[in-house]
């Protein structure tokens, strides 16, 4: 089954749409799907032109395509557990929150909290992403726990905050404090970043660009070769953050 959702023109286009019900399994159940436009609850038809093509007997056979002015739509793919969502443009905050399986492909940029606390599945963002990519919610002790987030462009500040499992790959640059409070999983940064892995207690972070404002609380621990994007790089190894328990591994290109 292919579901195509094209946004309708809106009088107030900057008011966010909260659309956690846009997940493949909901289109299989044929229940009425509602979304929030500001403080008003609306049916999906009020805000989207909806086209459904072909049948499906399970959620993993459902593909949802979002098109139009999609940059202010929040929570698409929240709690998704099967199927695929393709966004033919930008997407708003919290895309793929808590998802456990399936695939989300964002052909434009993603706003903040992409893949927040996800447990499994795969998110590919072909553009840039905002702050707190693959991070945790406020006050939460664990961020992303499984699955994979891949960003071809740059990420904002606090990427992979509280990362506890799974893999986050940012091919471009990261902002400030990527991997802050990290406790497990793997974070790969293809470009530059500032102050990586502050207060980390576990997990592995690799920085293939320049790590500026390097924190003084990481202990040098030799070097090793690592492969990234088809090439092998010599990486300096650090253990830290010793301001905390210091059991994480940080590698920075030599």
């Amino acid at each position: 089954m292919r579901v195509i959702l094209k946004t309708r023109p809106r009088e107030k286009p900057r008011i966010p749409i909260e659309a956690e019900e846009i997940i493949p399994q909901n289109f299989l159940r044929k229940n009425e799907i509602t979304v929030f436009h500001g403080n008003k609850e609306k049916s999906l038809d009020d805000l989207f032109f909806v086209t459904i093509e072909g049948p499906a007997v399970s959620p993993d056979q459902v593909e949802v395509i979002l098109t139009g002015d999609t940059g202010v739509i929040k929570r698409v793919g929240e709690y998704m557990n099967a199927g695929r969502i393709i966004i033919e443009g930008d997407i708003g905050m919290h895309c793929g929150n808590f998802m456990s399986a399936g695939e989300i492909i964002i052909q434009g940029n993603a706003d903040a909290w992409l893949g927040r606390e996800m447990r499994g599945g795969h998110i590919l963002c072909e553009g840039n992403t905002g702050h707190y990519c693959a991070a945790g919610y406020r006050g939460e002790k664990r961020g992303m726990r499984g699955g994979m987030v891949e960003v071809k462009g740059n990420a904002g500040d606090f990427a992979a905050e509280y990362l506890s499992g799974g893999e986050v790959i940012i091919h471009g640059n990261c902002g400030d404090l990527p991997g802050v409070e990290m406790r497990g999983g793997t974070l790969v940064i293809g470009g530059d970043c500032a102050r990586p892995c502050g207060n980390m207690t576990g997990g592995t972070c690799m920085v293939f660009g320049k790590a500026s404002q390097f924190l003084p609380t990481f202990r040098a621990n030799g070097s090793q070769e690592v492969e990234y994007a088809g090439k092998r790089y010599r990486m300096n190894l650090f253990r830290g953050d010793v301001a905390n328990r210091g059991k994480g591994t940080l590698m920075v290109r030599a």
Binding site: L177, N199, L215, P216, T217, D241, A243, N244
Partner: peptide, 14 residues
Amino acid sequence: YAVLSALRAIVRGK
């Protein structure tokens, strides 16, 4: 942030 981290490490005996 770096100065606070350094002070924490010192207080922890590092």
